[in-house]
Amino acid sequence: MHVPDGFLDAPTSIATGVVAVAGVAVALRGARKELDDRTAPLAGLVATFVFAAQMINFPVAGGTSGHLLGGVLAAVLAGPCTAVLCISVVLLVQSLLMADGGVTALGTNITLMGLVGVAVGWLVFKALITVLPRTKASVPPAAAVAALVSVPVAALAFTALFAIGGTAPVETGKVLTAMVGWHVVIGLGEAVITFLVVGAVVASRPDLVHGARHLHSADDLEIRKAAA
């Protein structure tokens, strides 16, 4: 869902740029609470994995493809503020080094995939995790559903920006239907990848998973810290 330069006009791109800077600033403050000596290395690796996974477009029906956005995956593994930073670093490197996603559109892309994707996904995850049984097994499916929701919501947010500042005269309704429709399907891929990766990490190192923190007491963490 990398928005190239040119889709949105300058005022809209500047506005999303301001939103992105503010969001990243808030995330920088919040990430301090999420990261310590044990979890910081995982967070760096999560960003690296999101970059790698975004290189693999999976085919979707009708000659379309999709790839992981990774906001929910990063939020569940490393924490929501850290996830915003992960996605922002990935988008920065993609934009500057790989020419994927426009440079003037960087703020738009951080807003859509970083802020909207992570925030919506994290809220859904938190809501699910409070109603599901308090076990490790609840974490991957909750993450998968959150991931599924996050993709069409990000697509919806793009449509809203397009309605405000799209440079081409295209009916918003047409864009809305197509964007949300296709991204529900792409969201299924997002859900599968998120389920598998979160599942693998929860199975091997549940103590490092931010979205499983509520399952551990402080005593558990002490024991594991000594063992690691």
């Binding site: 920088l28 990430a31 301090r32 609470k33 990261l35 310590d36 000596d37 979890t39 910081a40 290395p41 967070a43 760096g44 690796l45 960003a47 690296t48 970059f51 790698a52 290189m55 850290t82 930073l85 992960c86 670093v89 990935v90 920065l92 490197v93 993609q94 080094l97 790989m98």
Partner: peptide
């Protein structure tokens, strides 16, 4: 790309984290 992301993100998180 992976190495650049790892260095940037990893470096950022090491700076931001709470020290033990």
């Amino acid at each position: 790309g992976c190495v650049v992301v790892l260095v940037l993100a990893g470096g950022l998180f090491l700076v931001v984290r709470r020290r033990s």
